[in-house]
Design a protein around this nucleic acid. Sequence first.
DNA 1: GGGGGCTTGGTAATCGATTACCAATGTCCG
DNA 2: CGGACATTGGTAATCGATTACCAAGCCCCC
Lengths: 348, 348
Amino acid sequence: MGVTIHDVARAAGVSVASASRALSGRRKVTPEVAERVKRAAAELGYRPNAVAKALRDQTTGTIGMIVPGIGNPFFTTIVEAVEHQLQETGRDLLLCASLYTPEIEARRLNTLLARRVDGLIISPCDFEASAPAVLNAARQVPLVQVDRYIEGGGADWVGVDDDSALAQAVDHVVAGGARSVVFVSSRLMNSSARLRLAGFQLATARAGIVSRSPLLGEFTLAWGFEAGRSLLADGPLPDAVVCGNDEIAVGLLRALRLGGVRVPEEVAVVGFDDVGHAAMCDPPLTTVRQPVEEMAAEAVRLLGQVRVGEPRAAQRIAIAPRLVVRETSRLVTGGTMTGDGQEGEETT
Amino acid sequence: MGVTIHDVARAAGVSVASASRALSGRRKVTPEVAERVKRAAAELGYRPNAVAKALRDQTTGTIGMIVPGIGNPFFTTIVEAVEHQLQETGRDLLLCASLYTPEIEARRLNTLLARRVDGLIISPCDFEASAPAVLNAARQVPLVQVDRYIEGGGADWVGVDDDSALAQAVDHVVAGGARSVVFVSSRLMNSSARLRLAGFQLATARAGIVSRSPLLGEFTLAWGFEAGRSLLADGPLPDAVVCGNDEIAVGLLRALRLGGVRVPEEVAVVGFDDVGHAAMCDPPLTTVRQPVEEMAAEAVRLLGQVRVGEPRAAQRIAIAPRLVVRETSRLVTGGTMTGDGQEGEETT
DNA sequence: GGGGGCTTGGTAATCGATTACCAATGTCCG
DNA sequence: CGGACATTGGTAATCGATTACCAAGCCCCC
């Protein structure tokens, strides 16, 4: 604690200016001075104060990130990917959770702005309620939305191409012989839910398939389970169920299993995300893999392009995902695309 | 961007001192001045610069946290809990991942120290290699280890009581009739692996049980699967398998299922962590639940007690966990302790 | 030998908020 | 009415690193 560049300069017998120059190398100093300063710094254990540097330079080398919840494996994966990208450029991540609450989200935005982050990456929790705070923040600092976005298209966004995703999912089950397909997802509180439903409807229409009215609840295991039960109760089962995320799919699978329905023989099930437990549930889940690493890279890249106050059309980047076929859907192609993709990370 | 307290003072027609005082309320000003200043601040959209405040106050209101990986649900859960605790006191979390690599970990420690975090919470990735950097950091700033710790006991630690955990696991399967028990875990690279093995050995000895030699690999699904296969291959199966974490347990379950072994009828399986997918694998896993929220609260509390440079015996706080009985072990008690504990969080 | 130009070191301003210290004014009481 | 004391506002120092600006010294060539 507390050895400053003044101490280093004194120990080396030079001025603070020379010390700073010797250490940063931004202007030349005699080799001898450089040597003395560097040794003094090493001996004293000098560690430049990033706070002072930030104040002077008007840049903190810090990016703020806000996601609805870190308990959710999908967001976790994005956070991890973003952290990874930032490390490449020596920046650090200031992480916050909005707990799916617009008010908390707005507060977090404010503290991050007060901390003078160099940029913001956010997945706004609510399509409408998040809008004012997000737009306001975007006026102060480069801001990129990931996955979810706010209405109006006022800020840059990076996400998955939901149309492509749902088309792949629907085409896959149709190729497997399905003639009736149900979509089980979340109510339309956020952009993802909206886009996925739209993508599903587009894909089924194009495939000329009967799509029964979608079941919309929450992006949770519990809702998946409940939806599964109501499918069992409500008469003839569809040939396939496409889910808005993997949690729903897993809950649904469990309900079907308890109901004695065989998957994929009687009903095919497709999830969305391929994050966390999709590969290890039973049977392993066919799902659409979110291109998380690419999304993070793209978000960080975009962040570097935004110039605050310089009006510019908001960018929207949708990355095409890939369907990962496992065992909850019938394989029809000769060449399998089966992937496991479980990296097996260490725990505890 | 860039309205400072000087701007506010000028707009209100007072000095910066008065403006600061009116806004912070740390000294009295005439109601009239207070009113003028507050209105000016609101009109200009003044947002105090936290960087300048940090420089002046020598405190950033930021806690640094380093975990081996955020991809891992166990660490994610701790991060979430710590973030939650910090919010209570208005502090923010600067999050880093060491990627299970001591060198990266040391670098992250350095940048966090340079950013003058007010404290550090770390789960050191290596029992030995992490020690120098962690001890050095602990000399500069309050530091608390969570879950994993470094050799020598030189820094505070909060974690689970592994002896109690393993005793509960072993006693449970023994009560269910098991006479031979195998421990499948990670090689002893980190403290958790060491303590859990020790706890297991203590518990089996006390129960007078035959414990075959433990299988030690990694804390991964893949290793659990491999261990399960070798159990199947190596002759008579044990009555029960206790695992070092849930990933291992899930991998093992899958190997046993493929081998046609019924769980829990032929072999009982117990995991460790109860985080992520334990409740939703098939059959739902009996496991020891880590008291994550308590650990986080305790870590944050400890952080507040540490005074750097004030020599003090390192604290070690081991919180007793609770066994959550699900379906991979036989129930023997009349009153079941079955818990599900799946909160069902939103995704995407 | 002298002047132009280059190199290198030092002094002090800067970033923005806080606050120690001083000054001015008001209040109260003998 | 005068002095002691309380209250409130302002000025300037502070936190630590960077750098604009200035000055000194040196080289080179005419």
